[in-house]
């Protein structure tokens, strides 16, 4: 089996996207569950909770940027 430069670059892009995708998903799961817990007791926290829940989305954006730069 031969490793070409293009092939390794494509693999690196995939790792960057997959890794950050999983990291975002895990973080959003934890923050989302916590946000719902807080909102059940205090509905006025909806705005803050929403912002905090989508914040980990930036991780996958970083992954995307890295993938584009490779």
């Amino acid at each position: 089996m031969e490793f070409t430069t293009e092939g390794l670059a494509a693999l690196s892009k995939a790792i960057a996207i997959v890794g950050t995708g999983f990291a975002s998903a895990w973080a959003e799961k934890v923050i989302g569950a916590a946000a719902v817990g807080a909102m059940v007791e205090n509905e006025s926290l909806f705005g803050k909770a929403l912002v905090l829940t989508v914040l980990p989305e930036t991780i996958v954006i970083f992954g995307l940027v890295v993938a584009i730069l490779i």
């Binding site: 569950a33 916590a34 817990g37 807080a38 205090n42």
Partner: peptide
């Protein structure tokens, strides 16, 4: 979920 709700 439980800890945040209980903290609230």
């Amino acid at each position: 979920y439980a800890v945040t709700r209980i903290r609230a």
